[in-house]
Write a protein that binds this DNA or RNA. Sequence first.
DNA 1: GTGGTCTAGACCACT
DNA 2: GTGGTCTAGACCACT
Lengths: 243, 243, 243, 243
Amino acid sequence: MSDKQAFKPVRTKRAFEEICDQIRREIQSGTLSAGDKLPSERELAEQFEVSRSTVREAFRTLEIGGVLSLQKGVKGGAVVMQGDIKPITQTMEDLLSLGGLSLEDYTEARVILQREIIRLACERGTEEDFAAIEANIAELRAAGAGISSDERTRLTQEFYHLLALATKNRAISVVMSAFTEPLVYYIRKIGPDRSWDVAASRAKFLGHLRERDVDAAIAEMVDHMQRLHSYILSQNAAPGAEA
Amino acid sequence: MSDKQAFKPVRTKRAFEEICDQIRREIQSGTLSAGDKLPSERELAEQFEVSRSTVREAFRTLEIGGVLSLQKGVKGGAVVMQGDIKPITQTMEDLLSLGGLSLEDYTEARVILQREIIRLACERGTEEDFAAIEANIAELRAAGAGISSDERTRLTQEFYHLLALATKNRAISVVMSAFTEPLVYYIRKIGPDRSWDVAASRAKFLGHLRERDVDAAIAEMVDHMQRLHSYILSQNAAPGAEA
Amino acid sequence: MSDKQAFKPVRTKRAFEEICDQIRREIQSGTLSAGDKLPSERELAEQFEVSRSTVREAFRTLEIGGVLSLQKGVKGGAVVMQGDIKPITQTMEDLLSLGGLSLEDYTEARVILQREIIRLACERGTEEDFAAIEANIAELRAAGAGISSDERTRLTQEFYHLLALATKNRAISVVMSAFTEPLVYYIRKIGPDRSWDVAASRAKFLGHLRERDVDAAIAEMVDHMQRLHSYILSQNAAPGAEA
Amino acid sequence: MSDKQAFKPVRTKRAFEEICDQIRREIQSGTLSAGDKLPSERELAEQFEVSRSTVREAFRTLEIGGVLSLQKGVKGGAVVMQGDIKPITQTMEDLLSLGGLSLEDYTEARVILQREIIRLACERGTEEDFAAIEANIAELRAAGAGISSDERTRLTQEFYHLLALATKNRAISVVMSAFTEPLVYYIRKIGPDRSWDVAASRAKFLGHLRERDVDAAIAEMVDHMQRLHSYILSQNAAPGAEA
DNA sequence: GTGGTCTAGACCACT
DNA sequence: GTGGTCTAGACCACT
């Protein structure tokens, strides 16, 4: 036997993982597509020669991953979905709260990403896109100072989402969601920055967008984001320390 | 009662989901941190007043999400992890194969992201980063034309990963992985492009990186990526149609 | 989803089985050969990333299969062997006692196989082979009627083994062993056939062998075997019935 | 004390071996039969006055030997099987790859055995047997030149198995499997012999079989086998040398 | 001895 | 009739 390490670590695959793989393979090969209904749990248990619980464990995994939707009732069953971005957002949140990702890196990446979104939005955004953003800003203004925390975060998430939609690239809006939704937790924790008129800043930004003025739009937005981010970072200097 | 919608849709939260939420809340609040061990399944089942299978279902969900690691044996149990980027990559793959995301949007986003990575890598990359990339290119060259499909894709993934590491921003490298790994399936399916000297292109790119020549580096890389992407897109015009 | 059954039964491979496979693969590829010593259990446990008991379970499996020999002590360890025919014989015994193989089929196959052995032995047997057989017969004669059951079966096994050796084909002698050793249990159970002079029959057979008279040798031997087999079959008409 | 050697070597029988022996004895005596369930690991550990792991080691040994099947779950446990030919095939493979058996002897024995199988198949084969063989040949033909390596070897194994079944003697088909399955590794290694129309040869052979023409059938088959065997032998002149 | 994996089968809610 | 929940008890793996 040579001096080199000849053996690879063994990793026993669990039954439910093997089932997930087989189902995903059918999807990749095109045998199963969005909208198709899988056989019942009981029938699949027979096909896979495992117990119903093992099939359920696989179904659950794929449901969490946004691949399947499990419906109850006599007309129910497991239906193939188009996928769901939820797991991406959830994982970003987990990475942040567990320390697998620093808030610094996260916010820096968010700014970089946002710059590219603005660039594309300036290029491809339609008046419909801008009108939707305008309505969002108007709603924020209408709510006034007494706005609830829930409403404020909802409008903020919507604002960033509408902006991402103007890029006409769904992959980019998916990633932007993953870089915005987890912030909600931090924004809630620190409360609103009352010294700053968010609606006014967004309105100015929208103006630049409509004029297709990339640099001005970026300047306005990045300024706002950096202000928010540094506020969050300063408040989270020692995350979990006070718990 | 106002004219606004006053009631929220009823959604019965399943037992295991409630458990996941409780555990995640403990993590976000800092009560539980990476490295901590949870009580045994049997004990938690009693605390939550559910069966052991329900606790397992929750553990499984968090394990898939990279939040927990389930270890066997007498010193085993459920340990809190730092999070795992796997679910992000997996979800991207699912979105692509299920049609929730078009290959066009995905590849466009990949190029946009790569441009920013190169910008940062030119600015922050150290000689260590470049040496690692050089070694990767050398390995590809050494393998020659007879390289196995597995080895080729491994080296490609590593190349993009090493490049992302030079940005010194983990959030960016996480996202880049999510935009590179799912491509493996497509690259495997279409086979290598033998009319193109990948190693040479990468070597030239590395030269530009070392000279901190952002524009030249971007030009070289984007050229290569667009070539690959259009090849993949042309071969996948009708995904699943031939299955 | 089509009407055809799309999924295959899942079979989870256990950790020790995966280890056995990896070791066997190294042997087939020639990286490991007879006489080589494997790393220590502790080292392999690290390489495979499993516990020592799992490595032991794999070692034990390969030891039973005749692939490894486990030596105790300071110079001990797991050494690769040349293989062992024991598992073949053992499995034949198991198949017979469990009903996976009928005694009728087994004895018929034994006669067919023996005929081919005689044919080859007539063709290739040397005087050394015949002298060894002669000595075996002489020993049986010398023991006389008071021969112990153990001694009698030992000499019978040896006789058939020496004959198989005269074929100069080890594959054939391996198979013949698998068709002779399991008979011991039955012969012991029914006791010797005192109306039949076994030594005389074998001596006559040896004479034909020396004269290279295939047909006469086969006739003499097959006659004897069929007599024995029908006696065994008659006594085992209802196997296990009297238990 | 006689001049003969009076003492036998001491060989400490390991605990798990003693347990295996006891269980096998119960099977041979008919106390335990195929389909019976053994007591649980915990209970047997108490009865044998050993640890649970020792019982597991014995169970494992008998499972590998095809004597027991270990089932999980509430209705699970160790169940007695009818035996399994797998260990015979596996041992043959091991003997070949470890050098305990030469490929020359092995292939010669295979031809000798095959001749006897053809003889019996001509005598006892039914139209059902021949039709099954015909279907196998048709499947090979239908697959054409683009047949996958897996499919090709599966059909070859099936062909020889169906032929062996026509002998109506299970002992013979068991041995033939042991002389065919290990060849798969070598056939895979060397790839298909494209200069030879295997399907045509098999079809001609089947014709002779149907006409009960032993000599013609043997001639056709042995010709094919010898061609294959010499090809394998020439390619494996220095096994493991190039590794 | 601990915890993970899997099983068969029960009852329930839903459609 | 389907998925959702739960249980007791077996083997599997680790220390």
